[in-house]
């Protein structure tokens, strides 16, 4: 095994990465690490610098400043062995449209150093994994978007890479295909270091073990989806619905509980309120339950909110972004 590792544990290390296009900093001091067994979700509004970061990470564009290490190899000084470890699905899943699916995959495998029998096996494996069997001899330009996407995805995993970089892997797929891709990512994430970008928040909850939110070229949040949801004002809030009683009275009683920061009325008949917690504790529901028992309210619904990722996303990325599309 000739692979040098300077930083055991993290497969991908990015330090203070910067990229300017003219006077504008597309990526402005991004640092993160990804370990094997981790699926890192890259979130951010359009033009936040997600694609640019991924292009630098995969060695397509050189950074203006900063360091990238993949499996111990510097992407800037020793790019070939670093690139060998990476599988990459670029944005919009490009492919040579004049080739057949089989020809394209064999070509990709050959450039990855797979020849002869190993090439055939690798192609066969990804064709099965990505359900490409029915179109294997078809020219790529005749394929639907879903198949084209999967063909490019197949290319990225053809050498069973240790690092997988996927730029919007579910973009343009139908709900079933999206589900398949997410399942595949989660499964492969057990033995690889995966980084994928998306602007679909449910995807982060479905497939990621950690998420980074990037805005205007800077990381504004970094944590597990649960940790991020804790940042939401909804985290720990309790929704209460009771069969009868007056809203004003119930509200007054609720606001007397010390852990309740404020109360919002959802509806008056039936009486429904939402109590927001001061600290993100989970004991608010119990306190309200005890209160309800003492007041003999007829509870129809009582549940604790988990926090909403979309609200966190909106509150930390700047609203009314005056940016163009992805660079």
């Amino acid at each position: 095994m000739h692979i040098r590792r300077t930083n055991l544990g993290s497969m991908v290390t990015v330090r203070n990465l910067k990229k300017s296009f003219g006077a504008k900093w597309a990526v402005d001091g991004v640092s993160f690490t990804v370990q094997v067994g981790e699926v890192l979700g890259f979130l951010g509004p359009n033009g936040a610098g997600k694609s640019t970061t991924m292009r630098m990470l995969t060695g397509f564009i050189p950074p203006s400043e900063g360091e990238i290490t993949v499996g111990g190899f510097s992407m800037l000084e020793d790019p070939i062995p670093a690139k060998r470890l990476i599988g990459y699905l670029p944005e919009n899943a490009p492919s040579y449209t004049d080739m057949t699916v089989l020809g394209f995959l064999r070509f990709a495998a050959e450039l990855r150093g797979l020849r002869g029998e190993a090439n055939k096996r690798a192609v066969h494996r990804v064709v099965e994994m990505c359900f490409l069997e029915p179109v294997i001899h078809q020219s790529i330009e005749t394929l639907s978007k879903g198949y084209r996407h999967r063909t490019c995805f197949a290319q990225s995993i053809i050498h069973d890479p240790q690092v997988l970089v996927l730029d919007e892997p579910t973009d343009g797929l139908d709900p079933n295909q999206k589900h398949e891709v997410r399942t595949l990512i989660r499964k492969m994430g057990e033995s690889k270091a995966i980084i994928f970008s998306t602007h679909i928040l449910e995807e982060v909850e479905a497939a990621c073990s950690r998420a980074i939110i990037i805005d205007r070229g800077q990381i504004v949040a970094n944590g597990t989806p649960e940790e991020l949801k804790q940042r939401s004002t909804y985290a720990g809030a309790v929704t209460l619905r009771i069969a009868d009683g007056s809203v004003a009275q119930v509200r007054q009683k609720l606001e007397q509980i010390p852990a309740v920061a404020k109360c919002a009325v959802l509806s008056t008949t039936p009486v429904a309120l939402r109590a927001f917690a001061t600290n993100n504790g989970r004991d608010l529901a119990r306190a309200i339950g005890e209160l309800a028992a003492a007041e003999r309210w007829k509870i129809e619904e009582l549940h604790t909110e988990e926090g909403r990722l979309d609200e966190v996303f909106r509150s930390i990325t700047l609203p009314e972004t005056k940016r163009e599309g992805n660079p």
Binding site: L8, R121, I158, S191
Partner: peptide
């Protein structure tokens, strides 16, 4: 980490082997 290395398939092995050959044949 070591598990991940062990889990690498025959494919990845071939890639590592290829890198051991002289650069010009590659």
């Amino acid at each position: 980490m070591s598990e991940a290395i062990l889990e690498r398939s025959a494919n990845a092995q071939t890639v590592t082997d290829a890198s051991a050959k002289p650069a010009w044949t590659d």
